[in-house]
Design a protein around this nucleic acid. Structure first.
Lengths: 224, 224
DNA sequence: TCAAATATAGTACATTTGTACTAATTATTT
DNA sequence: AAATAATTAGTACAAATGTACTATATTTGA
């Protein structure tokens, strides 16, 4: 019983944050949607900042769990594909955090510091995976200093930014969004693949019915 | 005299938006910084939304001017480089718009619709430039359907997202930010270049002293 | 059971924000 | 110079927000 209310608050808050954005949600809107008093809500969470922080911790925890699972396997293309897909889903679940991240980081500085470390971790991880796959013959060896470092940075930025893009360019059709953008992110490895890498990549994408981009609304590149 | 106040309001508002974020700025904070009354400010701009919209129009106009200039030349690598550099500077000047874009688009729906069209335009433009450069032998011809379309989309997302990334990972050092990210964006063409393209690219970056990434704070990839 | 801890509702208050208005001042125009 | 328009200051108000507090109600544990 204890835990139930606290968890429900987080769930309702998450839904409201995602739908309306951080600034449009207050203790009172959450309490109102739950049918409890605002005074009661402050008993559990003093203000919205604390709720945001709690949700951030949940995201980090869930991402961490996926990392553990994936860490047990040796990284290959399939691994990269699954990891991206999974992370995109997770981020979409907590999308308000990424959409308003700068504003949130300004309000809750702990999140900013923590996130910085997270990014560093991700960089190491991807770097290791790529090196592995160069050895395995899927990725071209680095033909000039620093190209993979830059690529990793671009990929990480893209991994956080696609949600904002989706929020602006799609209206509503949730089911299409995650497949679309996870493919877009994954496809950034294409120009680095060897011939063998391309073959392996094609196998994976064919299996999942991926191909040229479609469904980007109002898009001249979109083949519809 | 007439115009002066209106323009100064926009200037002060821009500075405050960039520094504190959209939600922390009100008619009163702007008026306070200017030393005029809030009542006076509402005479010129009824509320902050209208100020935001005015600033958005200014950004669009300034970007349009750069497009015109660049349009008179035939697109080559040098052109792409300069365009990126210029656009980055412009976006940094109006960075609050991009940082809180989703929140702003929710508040001022006109901006959202307008921005969607803008993105479509940019896609066409880049697509045309790339086709040109494939013909010129700088870019590899498309070895699989759709790779350039996806690349363009990734590049556009990155072009809007780097500012948020900078806001989180850099503290203060403004001078470094624009060179750093404009190079990061430009470098995304590297894996698509032919041998000849690589040579041309190297010439450009060498001239400007660009190379492997440095200066990304707390970065394992950063060579310091 | 019955005291203590936990949870809930309700109220009140200081701040802030957009908005609307009035009155005064300054520029412009005829 | 007089009249008109444009600009500015100041005030007031309703709505919303975080915060703090009190008073019940409910659960828990000894």
């Amino acid at each position: 019983m204890k835990i139930k209310t606290k968890d429900k608050i987080l769930a309702v808050a998450l839904a409201q944050f995602n739908e309306k954005g951080v600034e449009q949600v207050s203790i009172r809107t959450i309490a109102g949607a739950m049918g409890i008093s605002a005074g009661n809500l402050t008993y559990h969470y003093k203000n919205t900042d604390i709720i945001i922080y709690a949700l951030y911790l949940k995201l980090v925890e869930e991402l961490g769990q996926s990392l553990e699972q994936l860490h047990s396997r040796s990284p290959d293309l399939q691994w990269m594909y699954e990891a991206t897909r999974y992370n995109c889903g997770m981020m979409w679940k907590y999308r308000f955090l990424l959409i308003d991240f700068v504003a949130i980081a300004r309000r809750v500085t702990t999140i900013r510091d923590h996130f910085r470390q997270l990014v560093v971790l991700r960089q190491w991880q991807i770097k290791a995976a790529i090196e592995e796959m160069i050895k395995a013959g899927y990725f071209e060896p680095e033909w000039e200093e620093g190209i993979y470092d830059k690529y990793i940075l671009r990929m990480i930025i893209l991994s956080d930014a696609w949600i904002s893009d989706a929020q602006i360019h799609f209206d509503g059709q949730e089911e299409e969004i995650i497949p679309f953008y996870s493919e877009l992110i994954i496809s950034s490895i294409q120009p680095f693949l060897t011939l063998e890498g391309r073959k392996a990549y094609k196998e994976i994408t064919d299996r999942d019915g991926l191909g040229p981009i479609t469904g980007y609304p109002g898009n001249p590149l979109s083949s519809d």
